[in-house]
Design a protein around this nucleic acid. Sequence first.
DNA 1: TTCCATGTTTGACTTTTGTCGAGAGCCGTG
DNA 2: CACGGCTCTCGACAAAAGTCAAACATGGAA
Lengths: 321, 321
Amino acid sequence: MAIRPAEQLIHKAAWLYYAHGLRQDEVANQLNISRASVAMYLRKARETGIVNISTSTQLFTDDVMARRLEDAFGLDAVWIAPENAYLADPSTDIAVLAASVFLELVKKGDRIGVAWGRTVYTIADIMSYADLQDVTVVQLCGNLGAPYSYRPDQCTMEIARRLNAKGLNFYAPLVLSTEALAQGLRAEPVIRDQLAGIADCDLALYSVGAVDADSHLVKCGALSAAEMAALRDEGAAGVIAGQIIDAAGEVLDCSYNRRVISAELASLRAIGKRLMVVQEDTKFEPLLSAIAGGLCTHLVVGAHMAGRLLQHAGTATKKAS
Amino acid sequence: MAIRPAEQLIHKAAWLYYAHGLRQDEVANQLNISRASVAMYLRKARETGIVNISTSTQLFTDDVMARRLEDAFGLDAVWIAPENAYLADPSTDIAVLAASVFLELVKKGDRIGVAWGRTVYTIADIMSYADLQDVTVVQLCGNLGAPYSYRPDQCTMEIARRLNAKGLNFYAPLVLSTEALAQGLRAEPVIRDQLAGIADCDLALYSVGAVDADSHLVKCGALSAAEMAALRDEGAAGVIAGQIIDAAGEVLDCSYNRRVISAELASLRAIGKRLMVVQEDTKFEPLLSAIAGGLCTHLVVGAHMAGRLLQHAGTATKKAS
DNA sequence: TTCCATGTTTGACTTTTGTCGAGAGCCGTG
DNA sequence: CACGGCTCTCGACAAAAGTCAAACATGGAA
């Protein structure tokens, strides 16, 4: 493939079409190629992020409910995807919104931390392309070599690919069999540096996991369903970047957590913009815990979840008074 | 007009079409309106800045010549519009490029200083719409009540309108008949505050004017052709925001300049990003002066002008060595 | 060299989108 | 309450964009 000329042509076509507003056939004879080629170049330009088409997410923050949620939980910004109003699949709607919000929050030169999960992978999957070469996407937690498609490193790499950014993967397993080994690995320079670099991120993207048999941790074999249930009894309330948190949003003191290679919650809290996206309604308590723990400054949820959160905030203040 | 619902509909249609990728007819029966209406809403969405279509300007900075210009003149970034390669009218090409670059440089929450001239007005005119409510556009110089359409306040307002931003106009004439009056007016709180606020801008957009009978200053009656010629003999090399500068890019010591209400060059230099756009080839010397005076960190020019600048830089260093 | 594999380009066709004028709803006014 | 003036909406048509299979390059391996 003649790399340069093709790239140039794509760019020129995109420029004439999108910036100057010429029609495809005008572009075609301007560049002496067929209109069909122009159409193809333009598709490539969109897929490469040479042209960016973005839709304002205003509508979803300009909501009374969103404002009230921001106030009630002290969040910087909340976006609410109107459930079942638009489309068949509401979870797609949330992911599409989350992807737009994410792209709106990313700035040139940013360092972005990305965790892992079905939600994050869905977002990566539908995210449109952008051209942000000086952005770095870092993986927030170790890998899980699972039969599932949404592995931590895949989430990171896919998002990096979409942004034309640099991806920084974690070459360590998410969870080890002994605490000693985990400690040793964390002390390894390569790993230590990467863990230390997490606090320098400008933006984090993650979801929160539920503490049940459906959790990825169980499906991927990091924990058995029985262990999960036991942890739940010990106060586990949710999963963030592969770690178990309690209702207050702190790391639960348990063997599992001590064996995990992942971002420290303190590092996560040091990140300026922490974008949390929750699709499933079942993740109500985990989300509350994450918010309580200050793990989230920007939130994207569905309308139903938003309603439950507000209701909860209402009863909580009532109880308090 | 039912303002809110219309706005909502536009937003919803844009969301479904651009973010979810539905077709217009799918959007139409999702929203229970005709496809024709959807098409209309989408156009409005684009015109309002609810959706943003932007093309990367990479191609024009990724140029060897651009790099060399940056090095030779110590500029942060240079964009070169390839002359006569693309379109009939090369000056439009420069303006389109400048508008894209401008939109790329604007950040949320920015304060933007805008000067005046045909170039700036052309840019404003072809600039696409964006949705940047927390941006403020301030006028860099006083007004000239001329029969021309591109008055300073119009440039400012038009750009503010395009960005959905706040426009801050200067309620003073550009030039007064006596120095005393100018001094008094500059001391007026309203004016003083605005002049002081210019240094707080994050981005400035201006061009540079030539010192000849074609200058706007002459056409608008601020100076006669004879006066202009006299100033030229006294060392005038260009016009920036209504002020006459010498070859070194400093304010020329003359009666005219003392009677002008405009941004101090020191304030302009305090602005982080100073985007200068030059369309006409005749503005070679004025541009050199502006660069010499450090009035420009980001530059958009045509290929021919770029060539002349480089050539000049070459001979200058040769002379020096 | 020839041949295959891969990737590009194109003309012809289909689908999608843009536009325009007619008609419908909606005020405020005479 | 009927009348213009106004905007919004829709159906039908025209224009533009997307798609696909076939032709055409291109480059490397046998």
